[in-house]
Design a binder for these strands. Sequence first.
RNA 1: CGGGGCGUGGCGCAGCCUGGUAGCGCACCUGCCUUGGGCGCAGGGGGUCGCUGGUUCAAAUCCAGUCGCCCCGACCA
Length: 565
Amino acid sequence: MRWSRAFIPTLREDPAEAEAISHRLMVRAGLVRQLAAGIYVYLPMGQRVIDKINRILREEIDAIGGQEMTMPVLHPAEIWQTSGRWHDIKEEMFRLKDRNQRDMCLGMTHEEVIAWLASREIRSYRELPQIWYQIQTKERDEARPRSGVLRTREFWMKDSYTLDVDEAGLGKAYDLHKEAYARIFGRCGLTFYVVESDPGMMGGAGAHEFMAPSPAGEDEIARCPACGYAANIELARSVPAPTPAAAGPREEVATPGVRTIAELAGFLGVEPAQTIKTLLSVAPDGPVLVLVRGDQQLHEKKLARLLKAEVRPAHPDEVRETLGAPVGSVGPMGARVPILADEALRDGVYVAGANREGYHLRGVRPGTDFTVTTFADLHVAQAGEGCPQCGKPIVVERVIEVGNIFKLGTKYSVPLKAVYLDEHGRERPIVMGSYGIGPARIAAAAIEQHHDADGIIWPWAIAPLQVHILPVNVKDAAMLETAEALGRDLQAAGLETLLDDRDERPGVKFKDADLLGLPIRVTVGALLAREGKVEVRTRRERQDIPVPAAAVVERVRELAERLAR
RNA sequence: CGGGGCGUGGCGCAGCCUGGUAGCGCACCUGCCUUGGGCGCAGGGGGUCGCUGGUUCAAAUCCAGUCGCCCCGACCA
């Protein structure tokens, strides 16, 4: 490929709207352009990266028995009404009507279509298992698209679905995907973790996410470097340090003006961990009192999961109405609503609000002084707390979710009547799994993990092209001819090349080469006339190695082998 | 949906507070020059200042509305 005839619109400066590193570099290197919030055009270099990733996806999913198909983006409302998600999902689904006023929507995912297909075509256990997949765009009206290509309203997704006769079959299909995913992300050059995740509205029995660590990520995980425990922060467990012992009888103390845990601890000279944080939450069935230790944060997702319902914090006037005291002075004593307490509060003696404005109680023992309806894990796991498996300190990291796998079970097959006859002639629902990977997120995560101040450093397997040939001065006939000859030779050797034949100053071309980040660069410059040599360097090491022109293919091959690992 | 910010040639920005008819850098075009890290000189093209309405003799500038984009939070199958 010749740069002079290619469309690679690089930018000298960072675009104003781009914040995340991958966003800035993808725009500056001419990979993508934004059409609207969360809607992107993939330019030729960006498309090549996506193609490379998709090729790896196809190879690995095919290898576990996946069969590629293509499903529609436009769906009739019926199948979504049947599964119940037409109503469960709100503004996030793009909805429209056709000319006959029939309800339609744009596909956010394809469980319904798969279940519909299976319901019509699968009859017998003899036809199972199946692994079906597609690589296609998904449409979701995201509340807030952000970080360039990391969270968009239209995005590519490799989504596969498994159909099995029973849970055991699903387990096998699930494990096959888990292994395939690890190979995929490894091949793409990503550092990643496999973490336990919340199945959420996908429903079902189990789920994992594949997470690429990066400060640009939107999710957090807790993991244990010692034993390998890893989970999304939404369900990560942790063992907080024991509550410091406290002596003294139960007594009411005046705490004028104290509103926060920090103020309370400071005022009374106790540790935050020796206090109880009392929060009133409102669930559909009414208010509940939620207690966490003063040094902990309530995780609303955990609370919602426990109550199996959406919850919201109570308004200050609701707090006063329910407990007879303002927010800063409330506590569990005497409360006439269900009390949910974090497990860290099973033991210990605490300071808690007295439900009387300006007063707190010392010497409060949960379970003794008041009745806890349910003890549960309700706190946010924090760095340094104990691993739930081995007790060693956990770490908390920001990550980009690059893939997820769900055990769906029969959540979609039952309503959509995707059933088969087993060997005894009994009708049974198909057991499903669903598995997603976002190719654009892989690309962005790779950039987040592999870049320097000057640009992208592409992992070999997903680089748009492999070798950047850079004649320093194209008006020098010998340089240009040598560069062209090298391009032909390298291509003949099976390598993908970009020849920067533009009549630009060397500095401009060097900067662009660093920005685009092809793994290997061959510079044809003054050394050619002097010694008959050109220079070969890797983008990562940036160390020029003089090589006789005739030995370039050999040298590049060696480097390629090393870079491809 | 709550909070904050920004819309001025292709890109990045100044001008706005204190109204007087638009400027800088880069990019682009022409010529000369230069060629190992975003050269130099000279000349040139390109903008209804997001949109609508209002105030005013006069609006990029003041007022109202509206649209778009970004960031934080909520949300996220």
